[in-house]
Design a protein around this nucleic acid. Sequence first.
RNA 1: GUAGCUAGUUAGGCGGUCGAAUUUGCAUUUUGCAAAUUAGGAAAGUCCGAGCACAGCAGGGCAGGGUGCAAGAUAACGUCUUGUGGAGGCGACUCCAAGGAUAGUGCAACAGAAAUACACCGCCAUAUAUGUUAGAACUUUUGUGUUUUUUGAUAUUAAUUAUCAUACCUCCUAUUUUUUCGCAAAGGUCAUGUAUAUGGUAAGGAUGGAAAGGUGAUUUAAGAGAUCACCGGUAUCGCAGAGAUGUGAUAUGCUAUGUAAACCCCACCUUGUGCAAGACAAGGGAACAACAAGAGUUGCCCACUCGUUCCCGAUAUACGUCGCUUGAAUGUUUUAGUAAUAAAACAUCUAGAUAGAUGACCGUCCUUUGACAGAACUCGGCUUACAGGCUAGUCUACAAGG
RNA 2: GCAGGUGUAGUUUAAUGGUAGAACUCGUGCUUCCCAAGCAUGCAGCGAGGGUUCGAUUCCCUUCACUUGCU
Length: 115
Amino acid sequence: MLKRENRLTKRKEFNYVYRKGSKLNFGQITIYSIKSKFAFPRFGISVNNKVGNAVLRNKIKRRLRSILCEYVEKIMHKNIIVVAHNEVIDLDYQSLKQLVYKAFSKGKIINEINS
RNA sequence: GUAGCUAGUUAGGCGGUCGAAUUUGCAUUUUGCAAAUUAGGAAAGUCCGAGCACAGCAGGGCAGGGUGCAAGAUAACGUCUUGUGGAGGCGACUCCAAGGAUAGUGCAACAGAAAUACACCGCCAUAUAUGUUAGAACUUUUGUGUUUUUUGAUAUUAAUUAUCAUACCUCCUAUUUUUUCGCAAAGGUCAUGUAUAUGGUAAGGAUGGAAAGGUGAUUUAAGAGAUCACCGGUAUCGCAGAGAUGUGAUAUGCUAUGUAAACCCCACCUUGUGCAAGACAAGGGAACAACAAGAGUUGCCCACUCGUUCCCGAUAUACGUCGCUUGAAUGUUUUAGUAAUAAAACAUCUAGAUAGAUGACCGUCCUUUGACAGAACUCGGCUUACAGGCUAGUCUACAAGG
RNA sequence: GCAGGUGUAGUUUAAUGGUAGAACUCGUGCUUCCCAAGCAUGCAGCGAGGGUUCGAUUCCCUUCACUUGCU
């Protein structure tokens, strides 16, 4: 799981990222990202209110958290928000994992480490 | 055995890897390690009722809102229990917002003579006019005249009717049967018939959810609870019961249908806002206005209280800490009570986050993928959703056997 | 989380408890050499389930969906 340091906690931070960050849309998932001064990444997760139940929404959040946990040491100097949309319900854990990997590699978030 | 009824219970188990929150302890102050705990029966809907907090410590009056059989339970309730009355079921049993319709007002489409109560048709009496005493009227029989008579289609209608086609191709004549109306003759009844006016009557008059207690008789000019019998209703009294009410007797011939989940009347309850409530830490300066306007704490009135905005000031419409979980608590036993529930004893501490933890993945077993569903101040209910599994009953019905 | 509001035809809307009315759209016909406009005509509806009532879009209860404010 993510530690408290690696989360976006305040409403202002969320708004800052939403306004000024770069946006990438992948249908089931959108990703907002922006540079930050911290050495470690900070993640925020938000699930649309129209997705299923409260139970389903919680489940999606937990899965996303466990996936993002793997990227904590690979990414530097970033604030990232992952927004899940209505079609996420049909996805498994594995396909979600692949989708997040695809999104991060396309958005040049992981490649910065290599370069 | 099958089908039910009632009451309750459970809500996948085990193992491995990687992780989150809170508390406690130890080491240490960048933090680390260990242990314990970590979502439901509905956490849901927010439909009721309370606690708690603030406001003037909860003022007066009106309006508004809610509830509505009795007694009891409860902190309180629109909840629960046991009864009463009614409805359903063969039954165990289940369901019911179940006060008042002579306090008043409103509404009741269409249909129907008429919709809350009169009028009309009808029946009857009286008065006037007129007809008839050997036939007006009523009734029976006979004769005679006129109209109609089968089938299908179309249009229309409440019924009917109209048109067209068809039959025996058409027309004419005669006979028989049935129905309606008219005429004539004969027999019977026996004093009234018709019209108009006045009065009586509510038996009958196609409808409708509802037509003024129902059925049958007596009486009457005709009728009518006017009278009687049975059934139903209402009131009083007695008895039983804590009461709703039940039951017996007597009286009343019963005067006004339904709707109050229409307004309303009666009885009882009701201040408002909701933890984004609120508490903690500090105030200072400037501008504008003036006892009016405006604001506060509710729809209105009375009463009462109060200036507003901006800037600075510990990031100050924020953030932090508290509120926050020991509580009308949970479990077991006993006692009281038909029961809801209450009392006592013993034992226990059982989520408390703040972008929001309570998990992710894998393996394995079972009914093979485990339904409905995620705490956000806390309780008591109600309502709604829900795959299955399990337990109990001197429980019920049917079938079979003893 | 707390407090409200609204659901009527494909769309925008109206309504006293007595069987729902308009406008635009859509279909058909007339008109025109053809289209548009115009005229005539038709189809299509009370979010869902119960209750009260003789009768419910309307009154009451439950439920579903959408939506507003506080942030």
